[in-house]
Design a protein around this nucleic acid. Structure first.
Lengths: 111, 111
DNA sequence: TCCCGTTGCTACATTTAATGTAGCGATATG
DNA sequence: CATATCGCTACATTAAATGTAGCAACGGGA
């Protein structure tokens, strides 16, 4: 369904430069991707639990994103449901400064 | 145009919990947002230069994202064009580990 | 003044992505 | 065999993004 193939391959939007960060920003910039990684931070969730956690996002798009994230190696389907791989946990770890930044940001009135 | 109001306010998708990180993930998860911040990292760009840097993304959506980013306090319009604010540069700084991660990720073949 | 070129920005028709609802086949439990 | 859940998909509707064109405003030259 995505017109673009697997991540890190040619054709991924924004990655024509060959810079991996572009492919990553492209993947993370798709709707619900960041949220999914965030919601899986504390452990695996079933597809339906994940849907609940993600504010009842449509199963269609969640499935699409989960497939992309699995292809990218960030998420895996275990017997406990969907969970972050070791790589996915590394990725999540890079969000930590983002989280602290968000706290500061909200307190100084971004808008 | 965005049916949701300014960021950090009620109604922003994914931020009903009141956690700032949700509002931030929502904003950053919109198409081209991450890319724009990335492209402005080395200095201000005119709207058209930014468009070129962003792979000729449509001016409509760039304008929408720039407005959102200005409302969020990450981007400002100076006489040199669009540039990151001090806050925007702080946000970009949190991407640094992401960049290093992207390099590792691409070398181990995510897909 | 007139002509260019550039700026930021907008209109609008088309295409693509996401939503919402329903339900499939498979597996497990009673 | 009836229920209930799992991961996942179909499909019609709605929302978002694209692509192309062009606006008004400003700033030089000639």
């Amino acid at each position: 369904m995505p017109k673009q193939g697997p991540i890190t391959r040619p054709g991924v939007r924004g990655s024509r430069t060959g810079r991996p960060i572009m492919a990553l920003l492209d993947l993370l910039g798709r709707r619900w991707t960041l949220r999914i990684i965030w919601e899986l931070r504390e452990g695996a969730l079933t597809s339906r639990a994940l849907r609940t956690a993600c504010d009842e996002a449509s199963p269609t798009i969640l499935q699409t994103r989960l497939t992309e994230l699995r292809e990218a190696g960030f998420v895996e389907l275990t017997e406990d449901g969907y969970g972050l791989t070791a790589l996915g946990r590394e990725l999540f770890a890079t969000f930590t400064p983002l989280n602290r930044f968000a706290e500061r940001w909200s307190k100084q009135g971004g808008s």
